[in-house]
Design a protein around this nucleic acid. Structure first.
Length: 745
DNA sequence: TACCCGGAAGACGC
DNA sequence: TGCGTCTTCCGGGT
């Protein structure tokens, strides 16, 4: 034992799903950098620095090295007949099963190396971190906007690891929250800590994380970790525990993702278990053997891989929601109390993970403080997935396709989607709503409820296939969806029951072919927005703008974990502060993006906080029923953009028409001129400013009953549904890295 | 057996 | 208190 080196990560980890972040960021001993460096220097030089690149032989070399260096018990190397990719997919539990007594060590070491590899990639030049580099672990990052993968996808993408790494990357970039998304009710949204990037996926503050045993003694502790979840805490924590316990979610996710991303065939989608059979990762022994702490939420569900998968999604989802909330509320608060943005590193001490406290990895105390200050209980109303259609939209449009194993577009243009994993999706939905007994039957009932209001229809003949009859913008703008019932579903069974819809409330309600086209257009616009966000050089901060606080902190934490002091150190706190301020300043200097908290103005840019470059083709005058929607689309007001319509159009830039809703709020319609459409020339296309005003006036008669453009893209719902808005992951931008470098200097 | 449908009653939040 | 949005349960059909 004397020769045994200090482990890079504590061994007192439970069997929960290894959140790379959590493990490394919150369990690092005081000097991880030096240890890691030492470790790396002693690794056999033949080993690629990126574990994923290891061959089988490399894996064995690595294992032998660990056995030797850490004085581990003898391993059965036959259980590690896998390459580095597969090895990376092994969970802590997997390691534990393969080599009891040494699994934690191996896992931790490996995770450290993965982290290191991450960091190296981040620092690579010409390695834009956002958004194409959102998949730092994925050698073949795919465009986030790719909803349905091309059939000619490279063979590599068939590799389960493709999506697994993607998923893993997500875990890294936006580490899972422990808290399984308590229903986004007031409590959960307002008081649940903005911990997403910091929480241990392992659930509930890593129940039992302080225990060195793989078996957490239950989560009694777990509820603590979830902090203010209130009544939801048990569910949250328990789910987290389950997630953790079923630590194989990631591999399975990867497998599943791969299949789902490359085929929408019934065979591949419909049943989960067969996927497992066909895509078994090299870790068959541990999927259900991790002895999850029995928890209320999942106790009646076999810990199968689907569940694990779901839990993984749940965490991601939860994290998305929290991050969105966090960003929104941060922006709101910043406008009022910018001085409070400085995280006080004198905040209560971060509960040291060493003591086994579950709080530390779950919610650093400084984040609690931040939460208290920045996230008031009375958060602004925000559906954020509280409505089923919104929930589905956000899953479907997730930029990272993180939920493609649960639900995926089948034809995004027409709004047709397929529930890939009904049970998993239902479970996720149930967790979202805190209805833990949710199942697909119940959820589908809710979906059928949408038939009546012409939001959805069933795709005949295809299981689990539904079609949105209204595009996200429509749905978002229709405040009173019940009004949609005015159209009798019976009238339009053929085309989705959308005929003659809802003219009564002034909402243009083209759910028929025109609506589908409108849907298609907006979907395309969303994709274009995403692409533009990725490519636009004049928006260096990307859609992330200055990184959100969690992102900043994530970078700092990552860096601290990989290089520097532990998160509990003042330097770490200072790093976060510095990063944040640095980014704010950077954003200001570079021309703050719309979602720059510091620069955001409450008026026009406010609602657009999630969209850098809103695009516009407004449905001038409501539902014309025209199939050529583009012809009716007129920009109305370009005041936000500060350019004339003609100039904007001439420059092929986007317009920012304003629409005033019934509440008098000015919102922005996000529609873009499609270059590929048979659009008139820019000069023709864009009315003169006077015309715009006239049009706007025509469209916005105060109190008028005349048809208005979609009513009120209300500011209270700053989280649009399109993919560009699903800001689930903590995207680490170049600025963030620069910030970190800056603060390290 | 699973999926799908829709009625009915009720919960829950606003 | 009313309303909207489910949730839950159910019987029936495919």
């Amino acid at each position: 034992m004397s020769k045994m080196k200090m482990l890079p990560v504590q061994l007192s980890l439970n069997s929960l799903n290894p959140g790379i972040w959590s493990d490394v960021l919150w369990r690092c001993p005081p000097a991880p950098s030096s240890q890691l460096a030492e470790l790396k220097t002693q690794l056999p030089p033949s080993l690629p620095s990126d574990p994923r690149l290891w061959s089988r032989e490399d894996v064995l070399v690595f294992l032998r090295f660990c056995v030797r260096e850490f004085d581990l018990p003898k391993l059965d190397f036959d259980l590690f007949q896998m390459n580095g990719k597969a090895l990376c997919l092994l969970t802590r539990a997997d390691f534990g099963h393969r080599c009891p007594g040494a699994g934690d060590v191996l896992h931790n070491v490996l995770q450290m190396l993965i982290i290191e590899s991450h960091m190296m990639q981040w620092h690579l030049p010409n390695s834009p971190v956002t958004p194409t580099s959102r998949y730092p672990l994925s050698p073949q990052s795919h465009p986030p906007t790719m909803t349905w993968p091309p059939l000619n996808a490279p063979p590599e993408s068939n590799n389960p690891f493709h999506n697994t790494t993607h998923h893993l990357a997500h875990h890294f970039m936006a580490p899972n929250s422990v808290t399984l998304s308590p229903p986004p009710s007031v409590d959960s949204q307002a008081s649940s800590p903005p911990q997403a990037p910091y929480q241990n996926q392992n659930g509930g503050g890593a129940p039992g994380s302080g225990s060195s045993s793989a078996h957490t003694s239950n989560g009694g502790s777990s509820s603590v970790g979830t902090s203010n979840s209130g009544p939801s805490a048990p569910a949250s924590s328990s789910s987290g525990s389950s997630t953790a316990s079923n630590g194989s979610a990631m591999p399975m996710k990867g497998i599943s993702s791969a299949s789902s991303n490359h085929s929408d065939s019934e065979e591949e989608y419909s049943v989960s278990e067969p996927k497992m059979a066909t895509g078994m990762p090299p870790a068959p022994l541990s999927y259900s053997t991790a002895s999850p702490p029995s928890t209320p939420i999942l106790k009646d569900i076999k810990p199968n891989w689907t569940q694990q998968l779901t839990n993984s999604f749940v965490n991601s989802w939860s994290q998305q929601q929290q991050q969105q909330q966090q960003q929104q509320q941060m922006q709101a608060v910043q406008q009022q109390q910018p001085q409070k943005l400085t995280l006080d590193n004198t905040a209560g001490p971060v509960v040291a993970p060493a003591g086994g406290s579950i709080s530390a990895p779950t919610t650093p105390s400084y984040m609690y403080k931040a939460k208290r200050e920045f996230f008031p209980e009375n958060s602004e109303p925000n559906t954020n997935g509280r409505l089923l259609w919104d929930f589905l939209q956000q899953l479907l449009n997730d930029r990272n396709q993180k939920y493609s194993d649960l639900i995926a577009w089948k034809c995004r243009d027409t709004g047709v989607f397929k529930i890939v994993d009904p049970a998993g999706l239902a479970k996720l939905w149930g967790i979202q709503k805190n209805h833990l007994s949710m199942n697909y039957d119940k959820m589908s009932r809710a979906l059928r409820y949408y038939y009546r209001v012409n939001i959805l229809r069933k795709v005949q003949g295809e299981r689990h296939c539904y079609q949105f009859l209204r595009n996200p913008t429509e749905l978002k703008n229709i405040k009173n969806i019940s009004l949609l019932r005015q159209s009798t579903p019976a009238a339009g069974a053929g085309n989705g029951g959308a005929q003659g819809m809802t003219q009564g409330n002034g909402n243009p309600a083209p759910s028929s072919p025109a609506a589908v086209q409108n849907w298609s257009q907006q979907q395309q616009q969303q994709q274009q927005q995403q692409q533009q966000q990725q490519q636009s050089p004049q928006r260096p901060a990307s859609r992330n703008g200055p990184m959100s606080l969690p992102a900043v902190a994530a970078v700092a934490a990552a860096a601290a974990a990989a290089y520097g002091p532990p998160p509990t150190s003042p330097l770490f706190m200072h790093a976060i502060n510095g990063a944040f301020h640095y980014l704010s300043a950077t954003a200001a200097a570079a021309g703050a993006p719309p979602n720059s908290p510091a620069l955001q103005t409450p008026g026009a840019a406010g609602p657009d906080k999630f969209q850098f470059h809103p695009l516009k083709l407004e449905n001038g005058g409501g539902s014309s029923g025209s199939d050529s929607a583009g012809e009716d689309l007129k920009p109305t007001d370009l005041s936000v953009s500060g350019k004339s319509a003609a100039a904007a159009a001439a420059s092929n830039e986007d317009c920012y028409p304003l629409i005033r809703n019934a509440d008098g709020l000015t919102t922005i319609k996000l529609i873009r001129y499609n270059d590929h459409q048979s659009a008139p020339s820019p000069a023709e296309q864009s009315p003169k400013p006077e015309e715009q005003q006239q049009q706007q006036q025509q469209q916005l008669p105060a109190g008028s009953n005349s048809p208005k453009p979609m009513e009120a893209s209300d500011q209270a719902q700053p989280v649009p549904m399109d993919s560009s808005d699903c800001n689930g992951s903590v995207e680490v931008s170049e600025e963030a890295l620069a910030a970190f470098r800056h603060m390290r200097q």
